[in-house]
Design a protein around this nucleic acid. Structure first.
Length: 1167
RNA sequence: AGUCCUGUAGCUCAGUUGGUUAGAGCGCUACACUGAUAAUGUAGAGGUCCGCAGUUCAAAUCUGCGCAGGACUACCA
């Protein structure tokens, strides 16, 4: 009864404390509240926020509310919409989006026009597969018109999927008004650019050996050949063939070797035996020494005389061959395949070999042009002794070097006359041998990869067999080497003679190199290394593609090529057509309905610049000759490199955007590193050649997205990650956050769903919990940030600390974004949220939120936590746009602190430098470390944190530490549940001190003597240490010399207090008094009770503000403990009354274990 | 073959201008905490900092030579 009376009194007394809770709760029922959630579902949040963006047109507002005269220019690299997007697109687009969003909240206007790359091979090949046709059928089975229509439709096949991905991942780009490369306006701008180059004399036509893809039916530019993955290691049959010298050679060698009964051969190696029928010369290096060898053919075992570069003799004659030096051993050869002897019988200079003639190796055909000059040995400086034989087989039709060296030496290429009498090589455009090679080889593909069903023996193998049979083979073997493959068809490329248009990009090489130096490459090594090297070795840009679906080359020429015109606009084309009609070249003008100067969509739909239309046009030259369009299309890379201008229909419309620099050059672009020689190059080349400008100021080239084992993702391997599935399961925020924080954009990312889960749980889970914690209590107290901002100096140490950290964070994150280091930014935020905000600030301040009245301290806590959440939401919004917007809105809806309706419309926070307090951060660090130490000590003694202890003792190193510790004393005490800290000031008697040399300070002073000195210092005893401390310096005898060490040169710390339980971390040492008094034990029990009661409250589903009535079954162990801590227990558990009763019965009575030995019953009832 | 990047705990990665005792997260083990609770804390195990040589009083860090992986370059026969 005694207790109940007291508890009643307590209830009255606590009325002040308790009622405001209830009132606050009721009063604010109808007021706006912070949303509370049952759990965190990131995918749902994303789709809800996405809906809000759509309804509120948030993206448009984020652009339009920023001043037009403060642009941040971004170019969107156009994806091709005829393929499905992959997870790597999420990566690439996240990077683009992050910086565009960041610049937006920095107050820039960031227009983001989407684009589609619609032309080119991938589209055509897709269509051909779909229609079941090949390139050869176009114009026969299907008209070019129908074909192009099919392409036009196919190209936008997956636009819906792409748009869907774009939205779901939160990539903000204007999809309403994209640029599309097949539209007339776009093509017209491209023509204008080409004419610009043409007028500058930078476009020419040339007949050269080029990389050619028979499977794709088109030549490839050098940058296409330099796409990643084009060079692959393949095993081919290589042949080392014997070329029999003609009479003059036989004579010469027989004389040098003094051996006339031998047949002499040149030996040359090739990895492409299919080019041997086209051989028209052999090259030797005139400076090398060659040796004449007497040996035997390994296949026929016939004696042979061969010529090989001296340095390669041992390589060529390896395996079954063995060197001998006497006529006898040669003669003793038994004719088997083993131990074939060879002997050097003479040597001569390469220059002596030149001009000797040899017999054609595989005489299927003769060059139609001066065949008498063929089959000679010619000089070639490029011939090395790296591999092969030092004699190089030359097939001018299938090698660029070969063609060049042959031309110089007057050797004809192996071109024969076709049915029309035109010169053609022995391999046709499909990659098949022509019929002249007979039934054995004619009509066969030169590479087995070109077959859908390959025959057993490739032509290389067939040729190898033939050579063996005819005794012309020195060695036939498999050889592994890297060989270029077509980036679209995956089939090997041939070097093939083609007639093409080129851009003389080499003429602008120096300027391109110069301008490149002004570009901010992320990472820099790509710019100076990969891209820089590429520019140094620049080739002319092969513009021609013999395809159908693309932008036609706008050049019309007379048949003899003497007169040519390059068309730069629709208007010009119309005018030229007019002339042609007048001259009777055409019946009517195909652009008759086009009105020059009218930029309407309708007007631009009255004609079509695609091949099937413009090829109908015959123009008239100034001398009255008909002019036909050159048959080629342009490289699609030119399409995409033209986008800065063509997306605005420059210069026909929006001329200011380029000329006044409003949207050119770009401040920022980002694509995969594989675009280095693709889009990054074509943008740069066109900008340099046409505008003498860079196309972009900053470029981020991101790495590949690999699977979790570091393998490249591919559909073939089945390790590709479905972006929709990932976004659906984890949400775009976690996906983006994971990708950005896990690896630097330019490093390859190993994509592992486990990592994604971790981000979801660790970062977003923690942030969500922090918000949930805030909203729970802020709703109870009706905190709406209506009160005056509590000045910083009136806030608690903890508040000022987290605000100091917050402001440091804002500064650092801003810097990271400015430097295009999103990984750094994300990691900074993540550390702040998990380690500092949640695990320290919230942990320390929990009680402030749910205890006590709604006074100044509580208000300060709310304001502080609110500020942190709000700022974190803003600075993280570029990376996690959905969830951060949700947090922002949930906060701002209640407080209305900012007028903006979305986080993406706000401004990046200005850091408050005065809020950053280094000393405070140091103090808090002391508190953290001290807390850890005490907890470690408790653990070692198995003393629960709930058990209060009387005191800890801390040696005081200096005045600063003294002051700093005082300031954070209360934090440490409450964290470790200890009553007091005892400061051990002058404790040299008690403390055992430790001294450590400061190497950084001593190093420069003592150099070599460091080691000895450090040993001396380490060996200091207590006397010496205190002497040093007292005098501030001490003299040490070192190698017979006296040196002086000051307190500055060492770190002295207290390491031990004999007789106490001690722990130390760096220069902080703490001792714990583990004596337990009755009062402490009772308090510990009371705490256990509070814990059990709180658990019961929660289990009973009580609200945090519900008041309760308590009954506890009395036992002798707990009676005193409860009695002496009654106020405490009631206050903690919101108990209006607490009765100790002799026996508790009924369902309400719950049995609880208080500690290992004490058990009792508790009944709890809502009041 | 050349250029560039990467190599640190079982995994993913930090590691400042060189400073001696190399860190974090995840995972693992044990314990604790618990009105943030699908959270949290503490402790433990786990390292040839790829190897070798050099510069230096001092190297994960700088230099050179290798090795492994990746990307890129190359007409390479």
């Amino acid at each position: 009864m005694l207790f109940s009376t007291r508890s009643l009194a307590l209830f009255k007394g606590r009325g002040k404390l308790c009622f405001p809770y209830l009132c606050a709760f009721k009063n604010h029922q109808s007021m706006p509240k912070y949303s509370e959630y049952k759990g965190l579902n990131l995918p749902n949040v994303a789709s809800e926020v996405l809906k809000e963006w759509e309804e509120n047109e948030t993206f448009q507002k984020s652009v339009e509310t920023r001043p037009a005269d403060k642009p941040f220019v971004f170019f969107e690299g156009p994806p091709s919409a005829n393929g499905m997007p992959g997870i790597h697109h999420v990566m690439g687009r996240a990077i683009k989006d992050i910086f565009c969003r960041y610049k937006t909240i920095k107050g820039y206007r960031v227009d983001r026009k989407a684009g589609w790359d619609t032309h080119g091979l991938p589209v055509e090949l897709g269509v051909e597969k779909e229609l079941g046709i090949t390139k050869e059928d176009i114009g026969k089975k299907i008209s070019v018109e129908e074909y192009n229509d099919a392409c036009r439709k196919a190209v936008m096949k997956y636009t819906d999927v792409w748009n869907d991905l774009t939205q779901k991942m939160g990539y903000w780009v204007d999809m309403e008004d994209p640029y599309i490369t097949y539209e007339n306006k776009y093509m017209e701008s491209v023509w204008w650019l080409l004419k610009n180059l043409f007028d500058k004399g930078l476009i020419y036509k040339g007949y050269t050996i080029q990389p050619y893809s028979p499977a794709a039916g088109t030549g490839l530019s050098s940058h296409e050949l330099n796409m990643p993955g084009t060079y692959r290691d393949v095993k081919d049959t290589s042949a080392t063939a014997l070329f029999k010298l003609k009479e003059r050679g036989q004579q010469l060698l027989a004389d040098i070797a003094s051996k006339s009964d031998l047949v002499y051969h040149m030996v040359a190696w090739t990895t492409t035996p299919w080019t041997l029928p086209s051989n028209t010369a052999l090259a030797v290096n005139p400076r090398f020494e060659y040796q004449i060898i007497h040996s035997f053919n390994r296949y026929t075992h016939e004696p042979i005389g061969v010529v090989v570069a001296k340095e390669l003799v041992s390589k060529v004659f390896s395996g079954p061959y063995a060197a001998v030096s006497s006529e006898n051993s040669i003669a003793s050869y038994d004719g088997s395949g083993k131990n074939i002897p060879f002997e050097v019988i003479g040597s001569l200079k390469g220059s002596e070999l030149t001009d000797l003639e040899y017999e054609q190796l595989l005489p299927y055909a003769l060059p139609m042009e001066s065949p008498e000059s063929a089959f000679r040995i010619i000089p070639g400086d490029f011939v090395t002794v790296e591999d092969g034989t030092g004699v190089v087989h030359i097939a001018p039709t299938f090698g660029a070097d070969d063609a060049e060296v042959a031309k110089k030496a007057g050797i004809p290429p192996m071109l024969i006359a076709d049915a029309q009498g035109n010169p053609v090589p022995l391999v046709d455009l499909q990659g098949k041998f022509v019929q002249e090679l007979g039934p054995e080889l004619g009509g066969k593909y030169v590479k087995n990869e070109y077959y859908t069903e390959a025959p057993d023996k490739s032509v290389d193998v067939l040729i190898g067999i033939k050579l063996k049979e005819q005794g012309k083979a020195f060695k036939i073997e498999k050889y592994e080497h890297s060989y270029p493959h077509c980036w679209r068809t995956d089939k090997p490329v041939l070097y093939y003679p083609l007639d093409s248009w080129f851009i003389r990009s080499t003429a602008a090489k120096d300027r391109m190199i110069e301008l490149n130096k002004t570009i901010n490459w992320k990472p820099a090594s790509t710019g100076i290394g990969r891209f820089g090297n590429w520019l140094e070795n620049l080739n002319d840009w092969n513009l021609s593609r013999s395809r159908f679906w693309g932008i036609p080359i706008p050049i019309w020429r007379t048949e003899d090529g003497a007169e040519a015109i390059c068309i730069g606009s629709a208007a010009q084309l119309k005018a030229e057509c007019e002339k042609a009609v007048e001259a009777g070249m055409m019946d009517q003008n195909p652009l008759a309905d086009f009105k020059p100067g009218n930029m309407s969509k309708e007007n631009y739909e009255t004609f079509d610049l695609h091949q099937n239309h413009v090829d109908q046009i015959t123009l008239v030259s100034s001398s009255g000759q008909p002019m036909k369009r050159e048959k080629d299309l342009i490289d699609v890379w030119f399409d995409s490199g033209s986008m800065p201008y063509a997306q605005w229909h420059y210069p026909f419309e929006n001329a200011d955007k380029i000329d006044a620099g409003n949207t050119f050059p770009a401040d920022f672009i980002a694509e995969g590193v594989d675009q280095t020689r693709g889009w990054f190059f074509t943008l740069h080349a066109i900008a340099t050649m046409c505008f003498d400008s860079v196309a972009y100021k900053t470029v981020v080239s991101n790495g590949l997205v690999l699977d979790k084992n570091g393998q490249k993702m591919s559909k073939r391997l089945g390790n590709a990650v479905d972006p929709f599935k990932t976004l659906g399961e984890y949400g775009p925020d976690a996906t983006r956050w994971y990708m950005i924080t896990n690896a630097q954009p330019w490093d390859n990312l190993r994509f592992d769903l486990k990592g994604l889960q971790e981000v979801q749980r660790k970062f977003f889970g923690t942030l969500y919990n922090t918000y949930a914690f805030f909203s729970l209590y802020a709703n109870v107290d009706g905190f709406k940030y209506e009160e005056e901002e509590i000045p910083l100096n009136e806030r608690s140490e903890t508040d000022r600390w987290i605000l100091s950290r917050l402001n440091s964070l804002i500064t650092e994150v801003e810097m990271a974004y400015e430097e295009y280091e999103p990984t750094k930014a994300g990691r900074l935020v993540q550390n702040f949220v998990t380690d500092e905000l949640s695990n320290w600030y919230v942990r320390l301040c929990r009680r402030r939120f749910w205890k006590g009245d709604y006074g100044k301290d509580k208000l300060a806590a709310y304001q502080t936590l609110y500020t942190c959440l709000e700022k974190v939401a803003i600075i993280s919004a570029p990376i996690a746009p959905f969830y951060m917007d949700r947090i922002f809105k949930d906060l701002n809806r209640v407080t209305g602190r900012l007028v903006e309706e979305s986080v993406h419309l706000t401004s990046f926070p200005e850091p408050v430098p005065s809020a950053i307090d280094a000393d405070l951060e140091q103090r808090m660090d002391i508190a953290k470390r001290m807390t850890s130490l005490v907890q470690a000590l408790r653990k070692s003694e198995k003393l629960k944190v709930r058990q209060p202890l009387q005191r800890i003792m801390v040696p005081i190193i200096d005045d600063t530490f003294d002051r700093q510790l005082h300031d954070v004393e209360h934090i440490i005490l409450s964290e470790v549940n200890v009553k007091e800290i005892e400061y051990l000031h002058d404790a040299s008697d008690v403390l055992v001190k430790e001294i450590k040399p400061d190497f950084k300070k001593l190093g420069p002073k003592f150099g070599k003597d460091m080691k000895a000195l450090a040993a001396e210092i380490n060996a200091f005893d207590a006397d010496k240490i205190s002497q040093l401390e007292r005098d501030g310096e001490i003299k040490i005898l070192l190698n017979g010399q006296e040196v002086e060490v000051t307190t500055d040169d060492v770190n002295i710390s207290a390491k031990d207090i004999p007789g106490w339980l001690v722990a130390a971390d760096g220069n902080i040492t703490v001792a714990l008094d583990i004596t337990l008094s009755t009062a402490l034990i009772e308090e510990g029990i009371a705490r256990e009770f509070v814990n059990r009661i709180q658990n019961l409250r929660k289990d009973s589903g009580l609200d945090v503000t519900d008041k309760i009535k308590l009954q506890i079954e009395r036992t002798s162990e707990i009676e005193q403990a409860i009695e002496n801590n009654l106020d405490y227990i009631c206050a903690e558990t919101l108990a209006g009354s607490l009765d100790l009763v002799s026996e508790l019965k009924g369902e309400a009575a719950k049995e609880v274990e208080v500690d290992g030995t004490i058990t009792t019953k508790i009944a709890l009832e809502k009041l």
